[in-house]
Structure formats: structure tokens, C-alpha cells
């Protein structure tokens, strides 16, 4: 299958402004968009820059805008795009380092700010082993544990594009995962952080995040649950 690729290129050391690189490639319909990009990089233009590692939707490194919408290039099949013209751009809301590579540091700063680790200084259970949870208690947080920090959601959020100080959907999902974990003891602290001006209240429920999450995490729902936990003082 013949594909026409338009990739937004930018090398701040050489280019004054971003430009479109256009490439024709021949791929199988069942190939992934990542394969098409690889084809360009390996056979047509080795200077094309992108991040990818696992190539199987696990590491979260290749989120980008594909035909206007964020996705993992390694998870999206060419045949599912419904067109043979593919436009590829870096994520919005983050500084472009080169071509499809954006600066993820601010994103990870937000991630760190919500204390993404279990806090519990209480003595171990009598048997000295695990802190047990019921199946329901596990289910409450299992969706959030699937997050691979690819930034597809945060890079799709108009509130985050407008103001990068907003903590962003991904960090709220990560906070939710611990806030609603019955073993954790720092929920109040995390909710306090998210209660600040650039916390959860900047969410305008535009829903782009939920629509693009490659792990199908119901992000907007989780954000609303965090809002309600702050308002009601109850973790439901």
C-alpha cells in the first residue's frame, strides 16, 4: 500500500521555522504508523528524529500527533486511519527539541509534584507480609496503574496548551491511582496539591485526554472523582 507522509520537521540549530518533510513509502495495511516512519528514517532521510523504544505500546515514548490527533505511532495501524495521507506532528504544549522529539521535563515535573509513590509508615501487618486489599479495592485503582506516561493526554489538553503550569491530566491520573489506594496514607496531601490554582480546577472537561489515551483510562472521569473527593472530603 502506497502512503504519502507529511512530517513536521524542525531543527532549532538550523531551521528558522518548522517545515514539512514529504515522503512516499510502501507499507502493508497492517503495518503501524511507526513502521512507516521507520521506513522514512532508515531508507530516505536518516536525519529524521523521533523517540521510540519498545515499539509495542508499553514504554510510552512515541506519542505524537497523527492526522491531527494524539496517538502512539506503535499502536496505530495504517489501515485504521482510513486514508493514505498521513500527517505527523510533535505533541502540542511542549517545546520541540528536534522533529518529533519534545521536551518532556515539564511533564515529568508535574508527575513528580503529586508524589507518585505509596506512602505508608504504619507497622507491617501481623504476619509481616503484604497489606492486603479486596478485589474491589484493587479494581478501584487498576485503570490508573495502566498509565505509561506517554503524555498523549496532557499533550491533547487545551488547558495545558494554554498554560504549561497546569498539572495536567496525566499527573492527575497518577495522583488518583494513589489517592484511591486504600493502603496509601498521603491522600490528603495529594488532594491539597491538586486543590491549588494550577491543580485539578484548571480542567475544562474538554475530553480530548479520554479520547486519546492508548490505555483507555477514563481520564475525565478520574479527574471528576478527584474534584469530588476534594469538595466532599470523602474518598468514595
Amino acid at each position: 500500500m502506497k502512503l504519502h507522509l507529511k512530517i513536521k520537521r524542525f531543527n532549532p540549530e538550523k531551521d528558522k521555522a518548522p517545515w514539512w518533510g514529504e515522503y512516499d513509502v510502501d507499507v502493508e495495511p497492517t503495518d503501524r504508523v511507526l513502521d512507516a516512519i521507520h521506513y522514512v528514517k532508515y531508507y530516505q532521510d536518516g536525519t529524521l528524529n523521533l523517540r521510540r523504544s519498545c515499539a509495542h505500546g508499553v514504554c510510552g515514548s512515541d506519542a505524537m500527533r497523527i492526522n491531527g490527533k494524539n496517538a502512539l505511532a506503535c499502536k496505530l495501524l495504517v489501515q485504521d486511519l482510513g486514508t493514505d495521507h498521513i500527517t505527523i506532528e510533535p505533541l502540542l504544549g511542549m517545546r520541540v527539541i528536534k522533529d518529533l522529539v519534545v521536551d518532556m521535563e515539564p511533564f515529568f515535573d508535574h508527575y513528580r509534584s503529586i508524589m507518585p509513590f505509596l506512602v505508608n509508615d504504619e507497622p507491617l501487618p501481623a504476619n509481616g507480609r503484604e497489606r492486603l486489599q479486596t478485589q474491589e479495592q484493587v479494581d478501584r485503582i487498576s485503570e490508573g496503574t495502566k498509565c505509561i506516561l506517554c503524555a498523549a493526554c496532557t499533550g491533547s489538553c487545551p488547558a495545558f496548551w494554554a498554560n504549561g503550569k497546569y498539572v495536567g491530566p496525566s499527573a492527575i491520573v497518577q495522583a488518583h491511582r494513589f489517592i484511591f489506594d486504600t493502603r496509601d496514607r498521603a491522600s490528603a496531601q495529594r488532594l491539597g496539591i491538586l486543590n491549588e490554582r494550577m491543580g485539578v480546577w484548571r480542567c475544562r472537561t474538554a475530553f480530548n485526554c479520554t479520547n486519546v489515551c492508548p490505555k483507555d483510562i477514563p481520564i475525565t472521569r478520574q479527574i471528576a472523582e478527584v474534584k469530588n473527593a476534594i469538595l466532599s472530603g470523602v474518598i468514595a
Binding site: 486504600t182 491522600s187 490528603a188 488532594l191 473527593a229 472530603g233 470523602v234 474518598i235 468514595a236
Partner: peptide, 8 residues
């Protein structure tokens, strides 16, 4: 309604 109270 819910089971764990937090004070924010």
C-alpha cells in the same frame, strides 16, 4: 457517600 474521610 464514601468510606474514607480526608480533610482538604
Amino acid at each position: 457517600k464514601g468510606n474514607r474521610a480526608v480533610n482538604v
